[in-house]
């Protein structure tokens, strides 16, 4: 069960990289968060930890429902073109993603030498999610894709914390959720401002400050 969920997370990260439209990107992110929420919930039940249970529910509420809703509202309100523009096309992106995943796998098997198979796998997938999220931020033109890339990176870190570490201290976890949520809202505000001042949300237009 856990094994398939972790693989599903990796697949959804690839889905993010290969998406051609903004709506698909947001949908994929929502799916990734759903898998993460289920995985955390299963882990919480296995360990019998109430704190982790609440955190799984929070992931469900925040990252599966609320944040994707905010993001798709933004796309509707500013009538952004649904086509994601690329610095690197999806085919090449996928190839790069494969390469990155392989590197992350090697890296994880160095770090988690002493750990069990699930932890090792989990580490590898979480590093891949972080790397692919960063990849998305670098090679997509739209500002919203950068937000999703950032959130995908955060999902990767969350996976590591939830499964390898069985969750961080509850207070810290809550504070991090608060930060992520406020972060998305603030980034959203700036997306509106960029749209108004630069006519469109292509970050390639943000090139006035140099040197």
């Amino acid at each position: 069960m856990e094994f398939f969920l972790i693989l599903g997370l990796l697949a959804s990260a690839f889905g993010l990289v290969s998406a051609k439209r903004l709506s698909v990107l947001i949908g994929n992110f929502s799916l990734q968060s759903l898998l993460l929420a289920i995985l955390t919930f299963v882990e919480a039940v296995n360990l019998g930890q109430l704190g982790l249970c609440i955190i799984a529910l929070l992931v469900l509420a925040l990252k599966v429902v609320i944040i994707p809703k905010i993001l798709s509202n933004i796309t509707k309100e500013i009538k952004v073109n649904d086509n994601l523009e690329f610095y690197l096309n999806p085919q090449l992106s996928l190839l790069m993603a494969l390469l990155l995943t392989y590197l992350c796998w090697t890296f994880a098997s160095v770090i988690f030498v002493e750990s069990d198979a699930v932890a090792k796998m989990c580490g590898a997938v979480s590093f891949s999610m972080i790397a692919l999220g960063m990849f998305l931020m670098i090679f997509r033109v739209k500002a919203l894709a950068q937000i999703i890339g950032l959130l995908a990176m955060e999902n990767g870190v969350f996976l590591l914390a939830a499964l390898v570490l069985n969750g961080m201290p509850f207070l810290v976890e809550m504070a991090i959720f608060f930060d992520v949520f406020v972060g998305v809202v603030i980034l959203g505000v700036f997306v509106y401002r960029i749209n108004r001042l630069f006519v469109g949300i292509d970050v390639s237009k943000l090139n006035r400050l140099r040197g």
Binding site: M137, A143, Q146, L150, G183, I186, L187, F190, R193, I194, L197, F198, V203, L206, R208, L209
Partner: peptide, 13 residues
Amino acid sequence: SRNSVEAAWKYLI
């Protein structure tokens, strides 16, 4: 302004 929003976006990201 255009400049300050660009700076803030880069800073945030």
